[in-house]
């Protein structure tokens, strides 16, 4: 096929992408350099760096970014810990059963964030399902406050994004050659040795891929922190929404989100460089 023809095939999709995805991003960037006038959506003409200077100099924004990072980090870690036994279990099933379990796992993702959030709301309310159960079996004597706390948001995030980790992890577990494990066992390696020397290193690519997906999803989540945080937990998504839709400060919400993206991009660049350096050193 001539390249011209191939390009024509892509052209409609490309146009759509440019029109609805790329151009709005230009608007976003342009707005972030404009001034905000209270009570109107129209900015005066002219270019200003004020929004960005504000972002850098006011510690409040840093505290929002930091909280977002902290919540995402904790959630990702918990997801990693929880998804490992689940993935191991699933990877050991026969193909049919495996499919069934994988379908169950993906339900929270395809079932819609809103329904999950609503379910968590009912579960985590002060007089909701979880507190009722805990009180009934005598584990606690006072209801625990989950809603409006970081813990509540983290519970919601963990459940929402666990499938993103289970899928890559299961597929990398499935690729491990059973013979290698069996050989190691026959040669007398203990369960933990096998895990730490064989299984875990071999699943690292899956873990890495899953972690990146999960971490990004947590960083920019909006529905979960907004509903389960009850307006008390300000993270990136909720603050961007508040400024864009409730205060109608589009310049600030634009610069706030662009700045965050830049920070994440820088951070991941640093992490990947460090990782590569480490790998090189170990390789030597």
């Amino acid at each position: 096929m001539k390249s011209r023809h191939a390009f024509y095939l892509m052209l409609p999709a490309l146009c759509m992408l440019v029109l609805i995805f790329v151009i709005p991003l230009f608007f976003l960037v342009a707005k972030s350099f404009q001034a905000y006038v209270p009570g109107t959506l129209v900015s005066p003409p002219g270019f200003t760096l004020e929004n960005y200077i504000n972002l850098v100099s006011d510690p409040y924004y840093w505290s929002v970014y930091l909280r977002t990072l902290r919540i995402s980090f904790v959630s990702t870690l918990v997801i990693l810990v929880l998804s490992y036994p689940l993935s191991v279990f699933i990877s050991k099933r026969k193909a049919r059963t495996r499919g069934f379990f994988l379908t169950l796992v993906i339900l929270p993702m395809i079932g819609g964030a809103m329904i999950q959030t609503m379910g968590w709301f009912a579960t985590l309310m002060r007089y909701g399902f979880l507190n009722s159960v805990l009180l009934a079996i005598g584990l606690i004597s006072e209801p625990i406050t989950f809603l409006g706390t970081e813990l509540g948001v983290e519970i919601g995030l963990v459940q929402a994004f666990l499938p993103m980790m289970v899928y890559p992890l299961t597929s990398s577990l499935l690729q491990i050659d059973r013979d290698v494990v069996d050989a190691a066992r026959t040669l007398g390696a203990g369960r933990f040795t096998v895990f730490s020397k064989i299984t875990f290193p071999l699943t690292l690519p899956g873990v890495a891929a899953g972690s990146v997906l999960v971490f990004m999803a947590c960083l920019t989540g909006f529905v979960t922190p907004s509903s389960l945080g009850q307006g008390k937990i300000q993270v990136f998504g909720t603050y961007a929404y508040q400024q864009a839709m409730q205060v109608m400060n589009w310049p600030l919400s634009s610069s706030f989100s662009i700045f965050f993206i830049i920070l994440i991009a820088l951070a991941s660049l640093i992490v990947s460089v460090v990782c590569r350096k480490c790998a090189e050193r170990r390789g030597r």
């Binding site: 209270p38 409040y60 505290s63 008390k232 300000q234 508040q242 409730q246 205060v247």
Partner: peptide, 16 residues
């Protein structure tokens, strides 16, 4: 007129 500023302060002083 002051709502944007106060929202910022509310986020900062009350919620935090």
């Amino acid at each position: 007129e002051n709502r944007a500023d106060w929202t910022h302060r509310y986020n900062q002083d009350i919620l935090e």
